[in-house]
Protein backbone atom coordinates (compact mmCIF):
# COMPACT_ATOMS: atom_id res chain seq x y z
CA UNK A 1 0.00 0.00 0.00
CA UNK A 2 1.39 3.36 -0.99
CA UNK A 3 1.17 6.33 1.34
CA UNK A 4 2.18 9.88 0.53
CA UNK A 5 3.56 12.20 3.16
CA UNK A 6 3.94 15.85 2.19
CA UNK A 7 7.50 17.01 2.76
CA UNK A 8 9.48 20.24 2.64
CA UNK A 9 12.58 18.49 1.26
CA UNK A 10 13.77 15.39 -0.53
CA UNK A 11 14.86 13.22 2.38
CA UNK A 12 13.28 11.54 5.40
CA UNK A 13 15.02 14.06 7.65
CA UNK A 14 13.11 16.89 6.02
CA UNK A 15 10.36 18.68 7.87
CA UNK A 16 6.82 17.52 7.24
CA UNK A 17 5.02 20.00 4.94
CA UNK A 18 1.60 21.07 6.21
CA UNK A 19 0.43 22.06 2.74
CA UNK A 20 -0.97 19.53 0.33
CA UNK A 21 -1.25 21.00 -3.20
CA UNK A 22 1.62 23.38 -2.55
CA UNK A 23 3.89 21.01 -0.66
CA UNK A 24 7.50 21.19 -1.89
CA UNK A 25 8.02 17.43 -2.13
CA UNK A 26 6.03 14.24 -1.84
CA UNK A 27 7.44 11.26 0.00
CA UNK A 28 5.92 8.05 -1.34
CA UNK A 29 6.15 5.32 1.27
CA UNK A 30 5.54 1.68 0.55
CA UNK A 31 4.07 0.55 3.85
CA UNK A 32 4.91 -3.12 3.25
CA UNK A 33 8.60 -2.73 2.39
CA UNK A 34 9.22 0.56 4.19
CA UNK A 35 10.90 1.97 1.07
CA UNK A 36 10.57 5.68 0.32
CA UNK A 37 10.75 7.65 -2.90
CA UNK A 38 10.65 11.43 -3.26
CA UNK A 39 8.98 13.48 -6.01
CA UNK A 40 9.31 17.21 -6.37
CA UNK A 41 5.95 19.01 -6.72
CA UNK A 42 5.85 20.83 -10.08
CA UNK A 43 2.70 22.71 -9.06
CA UNK A 44 3.83 24.20 -5.78
CA UNK A 45 3.86 27.72 -7.22
CA UNK A 46 0.90 27.30 -9.58
CA UNK A 47 -1.52 30.23 -9.75
CA UNK A 48 -4.46 27.97 -9.16
CA UNK A 49 -5.50 24.36 -9.28
CA UNK A 50 -2.43 23.09 -7.41
CA UNK A 51 -4.60 20.85 -5.24
CA UNK A 52 -6.44 19.13 -8.10
CA UNK A 53 -3.20 18.68 -10.08
CA UNK A 54 -1.65 17.05 -7.06
CA UNK A 55 -4.60 14.68 -6.69
CA UNK A 56 -4.06 13.76 -10.34
CA UNK A 57 -0.50 12.78 -9.46
CA UNK A 58 -1.62 10.81 -6.40
CA UNK A 59 -4.04 8.73 -8.46
CA UNK A 60 -1.41 8.10 -11.11
CA UNK A 61 1.02 6.90 -8.46
CA UNK A 62 -1.64 4.57 -7.12
CA UNK A 63 -1.60 6.10 -3.66
CA UNK A 64 -4.22 4.98 -1.14
CA UNK A 65 -3.43 7.32 1.77
CA UNK A 66 -2.20 10.92 1.98
CA UNK A 67 -0.83 12.47 5.15
CA UNK A 68 -0.70 16.27 5.21
CA UNK A 69 -1.52 19.31 7.33
CA UNK A 70 -4.79 20.13 5.58
CA UNK A 71 -6.59 19.76 2.26
CA UNK A 72 -8.39 22.38 0.19
CA UNK A 73 -12.04 21.90 -0.73
CA UNK A 74 -11.41 20.88 -4.37
CA UNK A 75 -8.66 18.45 -3.40
CA UNK A 76 -10.87 16.99 -0.65
CA UNK A 77 -13.68 16.29 -3.12
CA UNK A 78 -11.40 14.62 -5.63
CA UNK A 79 -9.47 12.53 -3.11
CA UNK A 80 -12.80 11.41 -1.73
CA UNK A 81 -13.99 10.49 -5.22
CA UNK A 82 -10.96 8.26 -5.78
CA UNK A 83 -11.22 6.69 -2.33
CA UNK A 84 -7.89 8.00 -1.13
CA UNK A 85 -7.71 8.28 2.63
CA UNK A 86 -6.87 11.73 3.98
CA UNK A 87 -4.99 12.07 7.25
CA UNK A 88 -4.45 15.44 8.91
CA UNK A 89 -1.61 15.94 11.35
CA UNK A 90 -1.45 19.29 13.07
CA UNK A 91 1.88 18.80 14.85
CA UNK A 92 4.23 21.63 14.00
CA UNK A 93 7.67 20.24 14.49
CA UNK A 94 7.88 16.81 12.93
CA UNK A 95 10.07 15.31 10.24
CA UNK A 96 8.94 12.89 7.58
CA UNK A 97 10.79 10.18 9.48
CA UNK A 98 8.77 10.94 12.64
CA UNK A 99 5.58 10.49 10.66
CA UNK A 100 6.80 7.20 9.14
CA UNK A 101 7.72 5.93 12.59
CA UNK A 102 4.25 6.75 13.85
CA UNK A 103 2.59 4.69 11.13
CA UNK A 104 4.51 1.56 12.07
Amino acid sequence: MKTVITSTGNGVNSQFDKRFGRAAWFCVLDEETGKTEFYENPNKDAQGGAGTKTVEKMVELGVSKVISGDFGPKAKDLLDKFNIQMVIIQDDDVTVEDVIRKIK
Binding site: S64, K65, I67, L79, D80, N83, I84, Q85, M86, V87, I88, I89, Q90, K102, I103
Partner: peptide
Protein backbone atom coordinates in the same frame (compact mmCIF):
# COMPACT_ATOMS: atom_id res chain seq x y z
CA UNK B 1 -4.82 8.29 21.18
CA UNK B 2 -2.74 10.29 18.73
CA UNK B 3 -5.24 13.06 17.85
CA UNK B 4 -4.91 12.88 14.06
CA UNK B 5 -8.00 13.50 11.99
CA UNK B 6 -8.77 11.34 8.99
CA UNK B 7 -11.34 10.08 6.54
CA UNK B 8 -12.23 6.48 5.85
CA UNK B 9 -12.84 5.95 2.13
CA UNK B 10 -16.12 4.27 1.26
CA UNK B 11 -14.82 0.81 0.33
CA UNK B 12 -13.04 0.59 3.68
CA UNK B 13 -15.80 1.81 5.98
CA UNK B 14 -15.49 -1.37 8.03
CA UNK B 15 -11.89 -0.56 8.97
CA UNK B 16 -12.31 1.08 12.32
CA UNK B 17 -8.83 1.98 13.39
CA UNK B 18 -6.53 4.97 13.25
CA UNK B 19 -4.41 5.08 10.08
CA UNK B 20 -1.43 6.32 12.07
CA UNK B 21 -1.24 4.49 15.39
Amino acid sequence: DCYVRFTIPRPHRHRHHCPMC
